[in-house]
Design a protein around this nucleic acid. Structure first.
Lengths: 259, 259
DNA sequence: GACTAGAGCATGTCTAGAGGTGTTGCGAGG
DNA sequence: CCTCGCAACACCTCTAGACATGCTCTAGTC
């Protein structure tokens, strides 16, 4: 095991913060390797001579910072740094589609991780107001909703929900789980909606409990929100895609002219 | 006071989560107004018939989500939704500069808040490696560093640090606190570096304690990181700008072609 | 009228202990 | 050799109470 320090009761810092600081330093300095197990709560109580809650407060602070993960019944471990996906704004370039690849798979090729898609659900609903607005639909306009979850190396990294006006999707593979080669953008182009441009609205916040479960992340890990709207050559909005990404796993790249 | 529910001991959800869920619903539904005070811990203990730690666990969950803020000695309050700044990728459009406005002021005009700039510091340093790389400088290349803090209606919303190769900034107003009409981009164009395009790398994470202090934010508020590189018409990188933004205050907008 | 001491109430931190649930490995029995 | 049951051990949640610290208002004093 690695060498732990002692608490200085004279300092103005609370014992819990001192304990957290020791581990934080050890982890960032690499003295504790990724996936390495921390001493158990009982061992820490013994070592520092403090109460259970004090130790747990210290560990919670580290969990909130995303430095460690606690696994029920097993122990507390140093969280491994997630692979970062650099996502460039050319990820929807036509060449990827004509090669028969959807955007997510095209990225995976570049960065080199094992991609998979999960929990595909398809339904017809009336569009939520934010979506209706962006798709220029009436408030009760109908949309095909495709929701799914993306995983890299088996770890969830993103959930996505696409909204396509029902009139553009009816009777196409967009309404089927497997949307065919090139994905739904290729199907939209089959329908004569040649894609011209995208807008993306990017924000970040803390996840809701539901999102935490779905993305299998702990406390203290923020999410990136990207709301993308796709337009065809006529300027007609043909799809809105609402994604929630595990923030530490992403770096979004954009390129734009000075005009 | 607003109407609180009761705990259902039969449910599989823990009491703490049930309490948190009640407040989460009430806040998002608007039944609890921004800045409204929640019942004190003592009142909640009384009302739900639980221990102090249970109540505190529930409140901590809400703090971590950024829904409430606890003020020592005063109480716990619904966090007011900050004014959201929609930041479009045309914010560096030349027309804003030719009108003599820097980007931040141009945005303020559109959205309508009182902008101010703060803590301007200027120095010459050797470029950090990430910056040197993006500016195509040698590892010991010298840069002029302009760091400052932006405020909207008196609240800090963003810190920014610009790095300009010393060879482009020497003897210009870039090295002075007031960089003149149109800001440093206008000065770079004065030097013959007509701006052609920008790249931005966007990420999000929890703030460091230093950043929390500088941006005056509490626990549970993530930050957006934007690293912008500006290129002139020759394709030469002329500036790197590293910004840390209070995530709930920002919505970044990008527009790009399908290509 | 201005200042101060203090009461009351708010959250912050810690101690001490109980019962619960998920995981693992080992030994007894088939 | 394999399987099942169980003990040991990990974290999770809650109870109960103590003391510390920060904020605000009030009553008393100068």
């Amino acid at each position: 095991m690695f060498q732990l320090g002692k608490i200085d009761r004279g300092l103005d810092q609370t014992p819990a913060r001192q304990i957290a600081a020791m581990f934080r330093r050890a982890i960032t300095a690499g003295e504790l390797a990724p996936n390495e197990q921390l001493p158990s709560e009982a061992q820490l109580i013994e070592h520092f001579g403090v109460a259970r809650m004090t130790v747990r407060n210290a560990l919670q602070e580290l969990r909130n910072e995303g430095l460690v993960v606690a696994e029920h019944g097993k122990g507390t471990f140093v969280r491994p740094a997630p692979p970062v996906r650099r996502v460039a704004s050319d990820r929807f370039a036509r060449k990827h589609r004509t090669e028969g690849k959807a955007a997510f798979l095209a990225e995976a090729d570049k960065v080199g991780y094992a991609p998979s898609v999960d929990r595909v659900r398809i339904s017809r609903e009336t569009a939520p107001s934010a979506v209706a607005e962006r798709l220029h639909l009436p408030v009760d306009g109908e949309v095909v909703v495709r929701s799914r979850r993306y995983l890299a190396n088996g770890r969830p990294v993103e959930t996505a929900v696409s909204y396509i006006p029902a009139s553009f999707a009816a009777g196409t593979k967009i309404e089927e789980p497997d949307s065919g080669p090139g994905g739904i953008y290729a199907r939209l182009e089959d329908q004569g909606h040649t894609l011209a441009r995208f807008t993306e609205e990017v924000g970040a916040r803390m996840p809701t409990p539901d999102e935490r479960r779905e993305l299998e992340i702990g406390d203290g890990v923020p999410v990136l929100l990207v709301l993308r709207t796709a337009y065809d050559t006529q300027g007609v909005p043909v799809e809105v895609c609402d994604t929630v990404k595990v923030a530490p796993s992403y770096l979004l790249e954009y390129d734009f002219p000075a005009r």
